[in-house]
Amino acid sequence: MKKKYIYILAFLIIAILGYNSVYFKKLSDIKKTQKESFDFKAFADSIYYKGILKSKKTIALTDLITSIKTNQEAAFTKHGNRLGIGNSAYFMIKSTGKIIDIKDGIYTIADEKNGVVFIDTKYIFGNDLRDASGLVKLTDFKTNAQFNKVSESLNEIVRNEIPKQTKNVKIGDSISFSGAIKLNKKQTLFTDLLIIPSQIKLQ
């Protein structure tokens, strides 16, 4: 008899705790509310056109490499952006070079000062541009999903803009380019770097 009361009491406690612990909503409603409350496209537009393209913080790739070789810690702190911990950071860089190959949207560039680098004009995904720009803070968003949505919108802009900028580009052309790269503190070689472009200009 006593056990019965204990079970009933335990059930009541669990039910009260459970009722006060979770709430359920339609996922579509949540997404709709988020969409209505924040215009990610407009935000990404402003980050790209007014921020990334006009940024004075974009460093020449040669200067960045020299700076890292001189004082890695200082270079990562000054020019790099990262959200969490770890040895990697994102950088916004610019450089010039000659296109020596174009394959599946990846431009192989003979960079005038830095050897061969690659520019990915097709598979623009991830958070490289958002994080390298250093213009978007995680703390400005309520959820990680919203924060990632900024990357999606930003990548979408670049996916639309780059083909326009490279419409007449062909192998052998000289270009100037800017974009995001990810570097690791343990990295000692700076060849074969993959750049997610923010802008490509025919010279």
Binding site: N20, S21, V22, Y23, F24, K26, I30
Partner: peptide
Amino acid sequence: MDLFVGFT
């Protein structure tokens, strides 16, 4: 399931 479970 078009379901969002929020936590207090």
